[in-house]
Nucleic acid binder design. Structure first.
Length: 504
RNA sequence: GGUCGGGUGGCCGAGUGGCUAGGCAAAGCUCUGCAAAAGCUUCUACAGCGGUUCGAAUCCGCUCCCGACCUCCA
């Protein structure tokens, strides 16, 4: 079997993944800022890294998965409005800041459960780690890479770049940005007079009296800068160097770049070895974002209550939609595309259910009745792991699984002999379908067919309908079928005279 | 303006030198009392122009178009 490769943003190439400590993985993923309701864009990184988590888990690693909650709010760094984002909105809504943060945290957790994402091992909050952040800032100041100005503390990017650049860790190592070019930009912004250089960023920000969220610090009342929380919390829970740091591509610069600079000053090494970045979801080719006014909230997505939506989409449809694209490609949202995912998911899930009902003994005992088909399936089955190992090509894995669906359906319908595949092939197919769809991709049945009372009722109704059909009383049989369909239950007459049904 | 990425059939999307992914949609056929589901078949695309090569969607060059980041952002 092939080994796992990740595309590492830090080195800009695919690299074989090995953990620092055999069998254990430390993974940090930038979590949400809970100043508003989660939207479709948030779904992508958290589903993507849920897959990373699940896959590493499948490979046998023990993982500490840390995903923060940013509840202290990022200030408007460029000084257009120096007020904390969260406290500003809190004033508008006349709520306590922590009340607001709690509300959106709860909504975020709800959405994560809907998506069937596994909970992180630790979900630290920024407000719960003010002390750690202050300690880290003090260390950076002591080492001479930060300076104090009017109760705020700024990171000296230029000095860092000169000294650490000489050690092969320049500012820009992750994003590929050249500091010298940035210094040349002629942008004039207010409140920058405190900074020595415009590329410097805040570690601690002095808070005005009207600012509600603020903490005592050696530099006066204030609040932490945008990037320091992740450095402080990742170091605390994963150590000075850990395996994977993940997040959206939009965080690569400046957020992750600054994180690297801060942590590197404190710990003399780049904090994470593998930097994974998922690409954006776009709407009509444009990134979804507050500034574009094209945000679809997750609650709107699940209920269909957004003007861009022609219908509601279930969490699993959205999850499947995301899985059908490689995580580093942009994914363009559209009703047609979502509907395709909805139907595709149903098709592959139905195949899984069928496969799980197959008696493994129907397979040719050791010998395949149709060697060509058997070989074909085996090749597809083996390729699944290779595709997954190739930087998590979930799109290709799904394509491989889809290629086996006609075979599964043919066996069920009797178009293909039950012993066309060998027992081993059939067993492997069953294993892989379950492993990938359920364990690794985290898909689940949303249609609730396991209700035993409903099953027995439908069995009775189906028998009555079959009696009617036997008497050629099609008016009655069609009435039963149509009215059940109106009620959301679809009957399907099978080849063998049986009846199957599904909730739609 | 700087940096980076991309343009694949009606739609969404894999693929990175030869072996024409996959899903959805559409059409035909089979099955069926009729449906639905399913199976089989069809639709064979790689922005444009040059170049390298026996051979290019895939490599190189140029042109056009789009997006992301540089500012809160998943």
């Amino acid at each position: 079997m092939s080994s796992l490769y990740f595309y590492n943003s830090l080195t800009r190439q695919k690299e074989q993944f090995n953990s620092l400590i055999p069998g254990r993985v430390g993974m940090y993923v930038c979590g949400p800022t809970v100043s508003g309701e989660s939207h479709l864009g948030h779904a992508r990184p958290f589903i993507t890294f849920d897959i990373v988590y699940r896959y590493l888990n499948h490979l046998g690693y023990q993982i500490r998965y840390v995903r923060n909650i940013t509840d202290a709010g990022h200030f408007e760094e460029e000084g257009r409005d120096s007020e904390d984002k969260i406290s500003k909105k809190a004033v508008l809504e006349k709520l306590e800041p922590m009340e607001l943060v709690q509300k959106y945290t709860n909504l975020f957790h709800w959405a994560m459960r809907e998506f069937n994402n596994i909970e992180p091992s630790i979900e630290p909050t920024a407000t719960g780690h003010i002390v750690e952040q202050i300690v880290m800032i003090e260390k950076i100041i002591a080492d001479g890479y930060a300076y104090i100005a009017n109760g705020s503390v700024y990171f000296d990017v230029d000095k860092y770049h000169k000294n650490f650049g000489a050690k092969g860790m320049p500012y820009g190592i992750l994003s590929g940005r050249v500091l010298e070019e940035q210094l040349e930009s002629t942008r004039e912004l207010e409140s920058q007079e405190e900074k020595r250089n415009k590329s410097d960023f805040a570690l601690w920000k002095n808070a005005a009296p009207e600012h509600i969220m603020r903490w005592q610090s050696p530099w006066g009342l204030g609040f932490p800068g945008w990037h320091i929380e992740c450095s402080a919390m990742s170091t605390k829970y994963l150590g000075e160097e850990f395996d994977i740091h993940g997040g959206g591509m939009d965080l690569q610069f400046p957020h992750h770049e600054c994180e690297i600079a801060q942590s590197t000053v404190c710990n003399h090494r780049i904090p994470a070895r593998f930097w994974l970045h998922n690409n954006m979801i776009t709407i009509n080719g444009r990134k979804m974002g507050k500034s574009y006014n094209n945000v679809i909230k997750l609650s709107e997505l699940f209920s269909g209550s957004h003007e861009l939506l022609t219908q509601a989409y279930t969490p699993m449809t959205v999850r499947f939609f995301i899985l059908q694209t490689h995580y580093r490609s942009t994914l363009d949202f559209g009703n047609e595309a979502l509907q395709a995912s909805e139907k595709g998911l149903r098709r592959i899930w139905d195949a899984l259910v069928l496969l799980n009902k197959f008696d493994l003994n129907i397979g040719g005992n050791g010998v395949a009745g149709d060697p060509d088909l058997d070989n074909h399936c085996n090749r597809l089955l083996i390729a699944l792991d290779d595709d997954m190992n190739d930087d998590l090509n979930t799109a290709k894995v799904l394509a491989g699984l889809f290629e086996m669906v006609p075979t599964i359906n043919s066996i069920k319908d009797g178009h293909t002999s039950t012993d066309a595949l060998s027992k081993d092939t059939l067993a492997l197919m069953k294993l892989k379908f379950n492993t990938y769809l359920v364990d690794i991709f985290g898909l689940k049945d949303e249609r609730g067919q396991s209700d035993e009372k409903l099953s027995s009722v439908l069995k009775l109704i189906s028998e009555i309908r079959n009696d009617a059909r036997a008497k050629k009383d099609f008016a009655t049989s069609d009435k039963i079928r149509n009215q059940l369909l109106d009620a959301g239950i679809q009957l399907k007459d099978d080849k063998d005279g049986g009846v199957s049904w599904e909730v739609i």
